[in-house]
Design a protein around this nucleic acid. Structure first.
Length: 570
RNA sequence: CGGGGCGUAGCGCAGCCUGGUUAGCGCGCCUGCCUUGGGAGCAGGAGGCCGUAGGUUCGAAUCCUACCGCCCCGACCA
């Protein structure tokens, strides 16, 4: 590939829209261009990087026994009605009608389509298990696309689905995918962690996310400093403290005029936030629910959502709270509250705490559950933090930011039952297939790799993901001997199967060096003055910047060695 | 959708508050000379419906209204 004939529109200045490193650098290096919010064109180098990820995914999927197919992006609403997700999925599902007024949608994921296929084609337990995947452009009408390829509305995803005869076999399929995912992300040269995760809109009983560690990640992970425990913080179980056995004191009503915020009430009553319990009110589907957590804690809405089985929970504003409870915010409490009440298990273990009195300008002291109020449910409802112990071994936890690049789910029979995807078992009975589903954000991996591998000069691709392996700089376009060497190296490397970009532009050396750094190609060969003077060319690693000076005839072997080393790394 | 911000040349920005000749600057682009190991220099040049529509005004990039688009923070997720 000749630079002079390529579309690699590098930018000296950073476009104003780009915030994070991957977005900034992918734009600057001419890998991607935005068409509209959250929708990008992959330019030749960007596409080449995507193809590298796809290649690794395909190899590992094949190794794990999965087969590739390709499903339609446009899907009939009927299928989505069968599982109830046409309503449930929310506005992220882009719906439209075609010329015949048929309701349709753009596929954000393909459980419905694959299940429809499999229920038609698979009849017998003899045909199971099956594991099918595709690599395809998905569309999700994200509320807020951001960070370039990190969260687009249109993105490239590998999605796979397994079908098994029973839970045990499904567990085996899940494990195979889990292992394949580890190999994939390792081969991509990423620093990642598999973590326990919430299963979200996809549903299902059990799931893991694969998180690339990066400060710009949108998720927070908790990782045990001692054992293997790692989880998404929205899922991470908080260990309930032992019950406080101190005697219950008499309930006391205290006038607290104008004192509404936790800290203000605490200062006024001379207590710590740990002795106060706040009452948060949520709209959960049709119903309104109050949640009790300690004054210094945060409600984890995903946990609340799962407890209530709600599609969505949103915190109510002041007006909503007053309409639902008749009490202004700041004075809410569990005693005599008019809405469904759920309690964090930490609160359930407390004695003699302070809450609002459900009356403007009053709070209670010495509130106790069981005596003063009862709860609909007690559960782990709060956000974990770094002071909490590991739920597995009790050791300290570390919190880190992560980018979700993969997610595996045990789906069970939710979809197969809803869509009547059954097989006939050896005993002659029809049984629902047990499903799993497995996603990888292919285009997101490119962004994540850049987040993890860049410096002030540009991107630094790990060899397996690099769009090209070598950039060869001809610094003497007008010098015949230099050009002869550069051209012959170019041809030699190509013949040896090396992916090489020859910078044959009529540019000054400075520009070529800058662009080479920006593009992040792992190996750089420079043919210039030093060849004229000493007969050597320079070989430099983008990562680390080590330089070797070699005779042109030594380059080919050295490059081949470095590439194979780089492919194995990680 | 809630909160904040921004739309002026391909990119980055100034001008707007306080309306008034031909709308500027840097980078990039084109031509020529010169230069060639870390985004050189000189000279000349092209490129604007100042987001769109309406309004106020003798006069609007500038003031007002609406709409559209984009970015950032939150809920969503590969």
């Amino acid at each position: 590939m000749r630079y002079s004939q390529s579309l690699i529109p590098t930018l000296k200045e950073t476009p104003a829209e780009a915030e994070v490193a991957s977005h900034r650098l992918l734009l600057r290096a001419g890998y991607i261009r935005k068409l509209t919010a959250g929708i990008y064109t992959y330019l030749p180098l960007g596409l080449a990087a995507v193809r590298k990820v796809e290649g690794i995914v395909r190899e590992e999927m094949a190794r794990a026994g999965a087969q590739e197919l390709l499903m339609p992006m446009v899907q009939p609403a009927d299928l989505w009605h069968e599982t109830g997700r046409y309503e449930k999925y929310g506005p992220e599902l882009l719906r439209f009608v075609d010329r015949h007024d048929r309701e349709s949608c753009l596929g954000p994921t393909h459980e419905e389509v694959i299940t429809d296929l499999v229920r038609r084609e698979i009849r017998s337990y003899r045909d199971l298990p099956r594991n099918l995947f595709q690599i395809q452009t998905k569309f999700r009408d994200e509320i807020r696309p951001r960070f370039g390829l990190m969260r687009g509305r249109e993105f490239i995803m590998k999605d796979g689905y397994s079908f098994d005869v029973d839970d045990v076999a499904a567990g085996e399929s899940y494990r195979k995918m889990y292992d394949a995912y580890k190999r994939i992300f390792s081969r991509c040269g990423l620093d990642y962690r598999p973590v326990e995760a919430d299963s979200g809109t996809i549903g299902g009983s059990f799931s893991h996310e694969f998180m690339v560690l990066a400060d710009t990640g949108e998720d927070t992970l908790v990782i045990c400093s001692n054992c293997d425990y790692a989880a998404n913080s929205e899922k991470a179980a908080v260990t309930a403290p032992p019950a406080d056995e101190s005697p219950m004191l008499e309930l006391v009503k205290v006038e607290t005029p104008g004192k509404r915020k936790v800290q203000v009430v605490c200062d006024f009553m001379d207590i710590e936030p740990q002795q106060l319990v706040k009452t948060m009110v949520y709209q959960a589907g049709e119903e309104v629910v109050a949640v009790l957590v300690r004054g210094d804690r945060e409600v984890q809405e995903v946990k609340l959502k799962n407890l209530l089985g709600a599609v969505e929970v949103t915190i109510l504003d002041d007006k909503g709270v007053f309409d639902a409870t008749g009490v202004p915010t700041g004075y809410l409490g569990p005693v005599g509250i008019k809405v469904k009440l759920v309690v964090d298990n930490e609160v359930a273990a407390m004695r003699n705490f302070v809450t609002g009195a459900n009356e403007k300008n009053y709070h209670f002291r010495n509130v106790n559950m069981g005596r003063d109020f009862d709860a609909f449910a007690v559960a782990d409802l709060r956000q974990i933090n770094s002071e909490d112990p590991c739920p597995e071994c009790g050791s300290d936890l570390v919190m880190k930011e992560g980018i979700e690049v993969g997610h595996v789910f045990k789906l069970g029979t939710g979809y197969s039952k809803a869509m009547n995807a059954v097989f006939q078992d050896s005993d002659g009975q029809d049984k629902p297939m047990v499903m799993g589903c497995y996603g990888i954000g292919v285009s997101r991996i490119v962004a994540a790799a850049v987040e993890q591998n860049h410096d002030e000069n540009g991107m630094i691709f790990p060899m397996p993901l690099a769009p090209l392996q070598v950039i060869l700089l001809n610094l003497g376009i007008h010098d015949e001997s230099i050009t002869t060497v550069a051209e012959s190296l170019y041809h030699e490397l190509q013949e040896r199967g090396v992916e090489v970009l020859l910078d044959d532009r009529d540019e000054r050396p400075g520009s070529k060096f800058k662009d080479a750094d920006l593009l992040g190609i792992p190996l750089r060969i420079t043919v210039g003055k030093r060849f004229t003077k000493d007969g050597v060319v320079e070989l430099r690693k983008r990562a680390g910047g080590e330089v070797e000076e070699l005779k042109p005839e030594q380059i080919g072997d050295r490059i081949v060695t470095l590439i194979s080393d780089g492919m194995l790394a990680g």
